[in-house]
Design a protein around this nucleic acid. Structure first.
Lengths: 216, 216
DNA sequence: TGAAGGCGCGAATCGTGGTTCACTTGTTGT
DNA sequence: ACAACAAGTGAACCACGATTCGCGCCTTCA
């Protein structure tokens, strides 16, 4: 009990930790998990590889924190868009949510790929699982609501359709075949993605299809 | 010119090479690419790691051959199912193709995952890309035909819908959230997958939906 | 002022998995 | 019988990235 670091030091320490997470996230968003080495993350934050272990017990721990923060933010944004009550009908809300998801995936393509698709080290596999489950559940809830209101096909299983929807949109936007898109091409692809998502969800009438697209 | 191996030796050599490919494929089908080490593949074929290099210049070369053979077979089977002219209407053919794809994915789950989703070493990335492109093109051709015949929504872009269809089905069947299924559960999931695929493809009328399911 | 820690450094260590290499064994052609 | 050569062995080598460790430096508390 002879040493109790003062607030300033604690703050600096916390700041450095934040910096590590931020830089690591930036690396993943730029190069994917493959680019996230202890050396690279530490260097980006201006410290040596060894010093990183004063802040995280292992690389896996750092990676988990990076993943969970980014993933949490993504799901929150999506959930927010899906809950947006400005348009009461479920179909519009779903379209709005998919549009949000799609635009974010296109703009942060590598990050979206890293979160959703890229293989990760064993230590994060469960986090990946949790993320996908959250995505699925969030979409599934909307689909279930749509079914209850008769706006969507009722012979479907919401969880399965929700999974398919996620897979379809992800494949179109960040799948290995989809080149990075921007500008008018992005609007076309995203428009198609939204239409496909609505079909996946079994939207019954030939949808009104407003402009779900949300520009950045 | 003093040594010309006799036919028997050449045969044995070719046989061993085949054995290596077969064993390596079995390993991938069982444990995924992560399990495919030079040592393991060589041991499975009954030789040492060093000897493997008398048959393949590198591990990447072996892996490529494993990938290309398995992938080629899968696409061929799918293309065959889609071309099956026993049912003339495009929608039935598509359903039949998806059912084939789905059953194969469920029965050879790890292999399907390894071919479609699991990250691979750089040396096979292009082969993966080619496989997905072939899947997409094969489905896109059917969708284009359906559009031409007025059986499918004509505001779609066949290549995009085909990609989405592949992503959706893959996600439902071998995605990280889908537990291995078998028996009645498999029939339910596959039935849903087929229905979703048809919706993705923009099948217009509320499809007749025969029994597309093909039991093993 | 000095003992006690925390922090950071950077070199050493470790583990893993692909690749190489000198050597043995067995077979072919003269 | 012998030179030439392929297949196979198994140990050594190598690259890479995570992790550890001993050492200064600096700050806090008595």
């Amino acid at each position: 009990m002879v040493y109790r670091p003062p607030v300033a030091v604690l703050e600096r320490r916390a700041e450095l930790r934040e910096c590590l997470v931020a830089q690591a996230t930036a690396i993943v968003a730029r190069e994917g998990w493959a680019g996230l080495t202890v050396t690279a993350a530490a260097a980006a934050a201006g410290i040596s590889a060894g010093a990183l272990y004063k802040h995280f017990p292992s690389k896996a721990s750092l990676a988990r924190e990076v993943f969970n923060r980014a993933a949490g933010k993504e799901v929150d944004v999506l959930a927010g868009a899906l809950a947006d009550s400005s348009s009461p009908d479920v179909v519009s809300r779903l379209g709005h949510g998919v549009a949000t998801f799609a635009w974010r995936a296109v703009r942060g393509r590598q990050l979206a790929y890293s979160l959703l698709v890229e293989p990760v080290e064993p230590g994060i596999a469960d986090a990946r699982l949790a993320l996908r489950r959250r995505y699925r559940d969030v979409f599934a809830a909307v689909i279930a609501e749509g079914m209850a209101r008769g706006e969507m096909l009722d012979s479907q299983v919401p969880e399965i359709s929700a999974g398919a929807l996620t897979g379809a949109v992800a494949e179109v936007l960040v799948g290995p075949l989809s080149a990075p898109v921007s500008g008018p091409a992005a609007e076309l692809v995203i428009g198609q993605a939204i239409a496909i998502a609505l079909r996946c969800a079994g939207v019954t009438e030939s949808a009104p299809i407003h402009d779900h697209r949300r520009r950045p």
